[in-house]
Amino acid sequence: MVNYIIFGVSISVISWMVGIIFNSILVKTKYYERLSHMNFIDSKILNKYLGLKYFKWIVKNTFFKYFNQKIQLRNGKADLAEVRKEMTYAETSHLIGFIFVGVFAIYWSVTRSFLFGFIIMIANTLMNLYPSLLQQENKRRIDKLIKNQ
């Protein structure tokens, strides 16, 4: 079971690099503009039930806060459009990583065991889907700030 968890976390970390690579290709296409405005969950209530508030606290108060320094607002001096662009890039990279690991999880569920695939998807959800949902929520907040400027 511990090996399943280690594998799930490892493949999720590897998926970050896969997401960045494929996103750098995708950003050059005409479809990327549509991706910058997608929202999976608009409801604040549903985000609350999913525990996004707690995930946000973890990101802000642990070593994860050092991962992407480009998407932080410091003393109100940041270019909001550039921060939003970086958020979109991070969000899309995590979504690509989520899909990548999802394929592995399905494969391992069929070839090894359902439990193995399930544990991989738990790690994948925490390390790819939740960061993407958090970026979407933050983009909505940034959009309000941009609109008020």
Results as ranks from 00 to 15, higher is better:
1 M>T: 07
3 N>I: 11
3 N>F: 11
4 Y>P: 03
5 I>F: 14
6 I>Y: 13
7 F>R: 04
7 F>Q: 03
8 G>S: 07
9 V>Y: 02
12 S>I: 03
12 S>M: 03
14 I>S: 03
14 I>F: 15
15 S>T: 02
15 S>W: 01
15 S>D: 04
15 S>I: 02
17 M>R: 14
21 I>S: 06
22 F>R: 04
22 F>M: 15
22 F>E: 02
24 S>F: 04
24 S>I: 09
25 I>G: 00
26 L>T: 05
28 K>A: 09
28 K>E: 08
28 K>Q: 12
29 T>K: 08
29 T>I: 09
31 Y>G: 08
32 Y>R: 12
33 E>D: 14
35 L>M: 15
37 H>N: 15
37 H>E: 15
37 H>A: 14
39 N>I: 07
39 N>D: 15
40 F>A: 15
41 I>M: 12
42 D>H: 13
42 D>K: 15
43 S>E: 11
43 S>A: 14
43 S>V: 13
44 K>S: 13
45 I>A: 15
45 I>C: 09
46 L>I: 15
46 L>T: 14
46 L>Y: 10
47 N>M: 10
48 K>W: 07
48 K>V: 03
50 L>C: 10
52 L>C: 05
53 K>D: 13
54 Y>I: 10
55 F>C: 03
58 I>P: 01
58 I>R: 02
60 K>P: 02
61 N>S: 09
61 N>G: 03
64 F>R: 02
64 F>N: 05
66 Y>L: 12
67 F>P: 00
67 F>Q: 04
69 Q>A: 12
71 I>C: 09
73 L>R: 14
73 L>Q: 12
74 R>T: 10
77 K>A: 05
80 L>S: 06
81 A>C: 06
81 A>K: 10
82 E>M: 04
82 E>P: 02
82 E>I: 06
83 V>F: 05
84 R>D: 08
86 E>M: 11
86 E>V: 03
87 M>Y: 09
88 T>K: 02
89 Y>N: 01
90 A>C: 08
90 A>H: 03
91 E>M: 14
92 T>M: 13
92 T>P: 02
93 S>Y: 01
93 S>Q: 10
93 S>D: 07
95 L>T: 00
95 L>H: 00
96 I>P: 03
98 F>M: 13
98 F>W: 12
99 I>Y: 10
99 I>K: 08
101 V>Y: 01
103 V>N: 10
104 F>S: 08
104 F>G: 04
107 Y>H: 09
108 W>L: 13
111 T>L: 07
112 R>F: 10
113 S>M: 13
114 F>D: 05
116 F>R: 04
116 F>Q: 08
120 I>M: 13
120 I>R: 03
120 I>A: 04
125 T>G: 12
127 M>V: 02
127 M>L: 15
128 N>Q: 14
128 N>K: 06
130 Y>P: 01
132 S>N: 05
133 L>S: 01
135 Q>D: 08
135 Q>T: 04
137 E>Y: 00
142 I>K: 02
142 I>W: 01
143 D>F: 09
144 K>R: 11
146 I>W: 12
147 K>C: 06
148 N>P: 02
